[in-house]
Amino acid sequence: MTIVFGVFLLTLMLVTAIAIVRTQNLFVAVMLSGIFSLLLASNFFLLDAADVALTEAAVGAGISTVLYLSALALSAQHEHAPYSSHRLIALAVVSFTTLAVIYATFDQPRVGDPAAPVHQHVAPWYLEMTRDAIDIPNVVTAVLGSFRGYDTLGEVFVVFTAGIGVLFLLDKPGARHSQTQTVGQVRLRHYLIPRLVGRMLIPFILLFGLYVQFHGEYGPGGGFQAGALVAASIILYALLEGETRALRALPRRLLTLLIASGALLYCGVGVAGILLGGNFLDYSVLADDPVKGQQLGIILIEAGVGITVTGVLLSIFHAFAARGRF
């Protein structure tokens, strides 16, 4: 049965991808890429990657569609000239490379082979050590938060930097004054069904986001997914009730504070490890029992990740949304 599902989902993904490239209407392309993300998330789920599927569904199908749409509103809806003059050369290069990569796949280890090199190196060690040293059920969270804590810290700072970059690019001081005049028109308040359904959904999305944040050690979830979900619920609120009310609930100064405090919390946990006599990002020293210390450290850094991701995604959304009216 899995094979039928797998082939069906993969083929749908291919069709969607080709349709995305072929269409000249950018709005259609963005909507199709939302569908593409959902198909990709289903595929991740078939491949046992529950955490990744959750992230892709929240980020790819939700947030990225909204960001693309707000960028479309500020630029263009249609492509003018669909292809460059070197189209045929490009097509030849791409076809040749596809065939070369497909030829190379015949040398790859069989998918799912437990003896494949990728499963031999460090992965069994992670599975074993998670049981012994950290004692939380979700190995993905354990690897993300503790074993590869440096890596995650780096990723959080990439997100942080991207958020700051967008604010620098789009946050014109002059744009802020005229904000209050026209903002009343941009909302879906007058559409009954979206408003009612949205109002019912928002508290549940928010609750689910918090659940994913704090249950990340036991089930699929964690700071990255929770940040995206919380941001999605507040973006939905902004779309329904107008941006002013969303900004009144969470002002931009607070969002900037969130971006910085999440990253600082993460670093602070690392520095606390040094001060208590361990290494940077070594959580074992945070509590009397090393295993409890690891669990505490993971909860704290996941909270830091969630706070920063929420702050960055919401700031980016507000930066795009405020750009349209000046």
Partner: peptide, 13 residues
């Protein structure tokens, strides 16, 4: 998992 979130941030940039 981390690459997806970093991907959306760079796309936004």
């Amino acid at each position: 998992l981390t690459a997806i979130v970093v991907g959306i941030s760079t796309t936004a940039l």
